[in-house]
Structures are given as C-alpha cells and as structure tokens.
Amino acid sequence: MNITEPFAIGNSGIHLLDPRPRVVIAVLFSTITAVLQQFPPLFLAFALALFLVFRARLNPVIVGKRLTILGLFLTMIWLLVPLTFEGELVTRFWKLNIYLPGIVYSAKITIKSVTILLIFMSLVATMPITTLGHTLHRLRLPEKLVFLLLITYRYLFVIGEEYVRLRTAMKIRGFKSGTNLHSFKTTAYLIGMLFVRASVRAERVNQAMRLRGFNGHFYSLEDFAAYRSSGWFLTFALSLLILILVLEWLL
C-alpha cells in the first residue's frame, strides 16, 4: 500500500508559489465552478484550469490516469441522467427516451468535475501533504483538524502494513476468501483487529507525544517567506474569477 504524491515535487512557477494563496484560490475557484450554470463561464473556468495544469508542468499521463477514475463516475451519470431527467425529447433509442435537459445536465457535471479536479491537481497536489497541513494551519483551520490530516497521513502506512501482515498470516494458514460464513467472519475479525491495533497504537503515540511535552498546540516549522511572491498570481486568478462571475450574471 502506498500513497504517491507524483505532483508534489517540482520547480514550475506554481510549485514555487506561496502555498497559502494557492489553497485559497483553489477553494474559491472550485466553489465558484461548482455553482456555475452557464456554459460560457464554465468553459472559461475549464480553460483556466487547463492553463494552470500546463503551468504546473504536470505529467500528462498521470493527469490522464487520475481523470480516468473520475471517468467511471461520469459514465454512470451519462448512462442514467439523459434517460431520467425529463424534458424536451431529443431522440428515441429503441424504447428509451433521451431527453435534452439530461444531456445538458450531464455535460455541466462533466465540465465542472473535471475542472475542479484539474484545479486541485495544479494548485494543491503540487505541494507535499505536510506543507498542505502547515498551510491550512496558517489559514486558521482548527489545530485538531490539521493534526488529524497530518497524523492520518503518517499512520495510514503503518496501519496499511499491519493489514498486509495480518492478511499474509491468514494466507499462509490456507485462508481463501469466498462467499461463505467463514470468510465473512474471518474478514470481520481482520477488520476488527485493525481497529483494535489502531486504537492501541493511537494510545501509545499519544503517550509518546505527552512525554515530549505535547500540550495540544501545533507548532509549525514551515517558513513561508522562502516562497516566491504571489502577487501576480493572485491578481491574475482573482480577475479571471471575477470575469467568470460577470459572465455568469450577464448571460
């Protein structure tokens, strides 16, 4: 088991930018994209997202792979929504009615979701999870949530390894998963054991932290002064976002 961060390290203009405005713009930009109703501003948002991905010099193959996962969900939508969102009839296919509003709706969902994914790939995935944690802390996200993010990231691997070990131990004693009560029971034990181990470990980690003087406060070593000034980026991104909103209102 592994979490890869293929975009985190790089030296593009976007990688060198201060992470704080990047996160703020990503949140603003995706929220606005999510509520847009008109096609022209949607296309503009999509173009902006593409531009950011291009500027971040992300590996197009990996970007494609990540979009494929989204593609599965979108396929479901394209299969169902045009048949069920009733309105003006476009065509009849065998005995199925295909409706125009359904097609329009599916198209909007497609553009929106792809755009939001691209925004996060270019602006947020281009920093290591650790930096993201410290950035959110600087942006005044509650300390508990920041800890939750960072510690989840740290211990996911440990719990994953425990899972693999338990799984192997089951295998070498001849366990094969099937559709029977024994398999369900064993799998339930496995999951239960993971929870038990995770909570026992959480207790020990907490003790180790207390021994080192932990008092619930989060201190960050991240030095945001080291990043490139982000004035141009903020101006550029904000003015485009305003343009998108104006387009939405005018049309």
Binding site: I129, R154, G213
Partner: peptide
Amino acid sequence: DDQLFSPTVLEDVAFGPLNL
C-alpha cells in the same frame, strides 16, 4: 513508529524543543 509521528524527520526532532 509510536515515537515518530511527524511526516518529516526534522519536524519530529524539533517537536520536543517547540513544546518546551
């Protein structure tokens, strides 16, 4: 693994001094 909970080595070693 119980002791090292920070993502990076420097952060983990600096954790105690920061708490102090």
